[in-house]
Amino acid sequence: MTHLPTVKTGDALTEYELTDLDVDRHLLDLSGRSLVVFTSAGCASCRWARKSLAEMELPIEQLVWIDAANNPGVVQRYDVFHLPALFAVKDGSFYDQVSCRLHANELCLALDAAFSLPPEELP
């Protein structure tokens, strides 16, 4: 596996900051469950997500952050129309967009539902 740009590593959760240039390769290489989160500095909900998601007990091993303002290519491929936008990825496969409020219980249910779907290729 190539070197990933690690933002923060906790006991059970690692965070990555990816860009248009490296997102495809790294998402294919990551093993386990990942929550891919598109954010932007000017978005209040995104700032809250950035601060809070890593502290929640979620059924994932990685949080992958993508700055939507600076990475238009991946934003277009994932059809991101609102922020924050969340997507479930596992072992290099795409599962689904995660649509729910940013509360631990709702996120756990939405992630479990997403990961129960058949996997697809990454966008």
Rank of each mutant, 00 (worst) to 15 (best):
P59Y: 08
L63Y: 03
T9D: 04
D24P: 10
I60P: 00
D20I: 12
A54N: 07
Q62R: 15
C43I: 04
A44S: 01
C43Q: 08
S34Y: 05
E15A: 12
G73R: 14
D20N: 13
R50C: 04
V74E: 03
G92E: 10
V74W: 09
K90P: 09
D20Q: 07
L21P: 14
T19K: 06
S93A: 10
R101Q: 10
L63S: 12
N105Y: 13
D20G: 05
P123A: 08
C100T: 12
D20C: 07
I60H: 04
Y95D: 03
A44V: 00
R47E: 01
C100R: 03
G32M: 01
M56Q: 09
P59F: 06
F38M: 02
A69C: 12
L35F: 03
Y16P: 01
A85G: 03
S45C: 00
E57S: 13
R50M: 07
F87V: 04
V7D: 01
F87P: 01
T6F: 04
Q62L: 14
E15F: 05
S34Q: 09
L122C: 04
D91H: 09
L102H: 06
D24R: 15
T9V: 15
L86N: 05
Y16N: 01
A113D: 14
L27A: 08
H26L: 08
Q76G: 08
Y95H: 08
G10K: 13
P123K: 06
L18F: 07
D79Y: 10
F81L: 14
P123Y: 10
K51Q: 05
V7N: 03
A44P: 00
D20R: 06
C46N: 00
Q97G: 05
L13W: 08
D11W: 11
A44N: 00
G32D: 02
C108T: 13
C43H: 09
S31C: 03
D67K: 11
G73C: 15
Q62F: 13
R101E: 06
E15R: 14
A54P: 04
K90W: 11
V98F: 01
R47L: 06
N71W: 03
R50Q: 09
A113Y: 09
Q76D: 13
R33N: 13
I60A: 08
R33T: 12
V89D: 05
E55T: 10
P84D: 00
T2C: 11
S116E: 05
C100W: 02
L35S: 09
L83E: 03
S40R: 06
S52F: 02
E17M: 10
K90H: 15
F81C: 06
L107C: 09
C46H: 00
E57N: 11
S93H: 13
R33Q: 05
P118H: 10
E55I: 02
P123Q: 05
L83T: 01
E106Y: 12
G42W: 07
E121G: 12
W48H: 10
A54Y: 00
L53Y: 02
P5Y: 06
H3P: 15
H26R: 08
C100D: 03
A85P: 06
K90Y: 12
L58G: 05
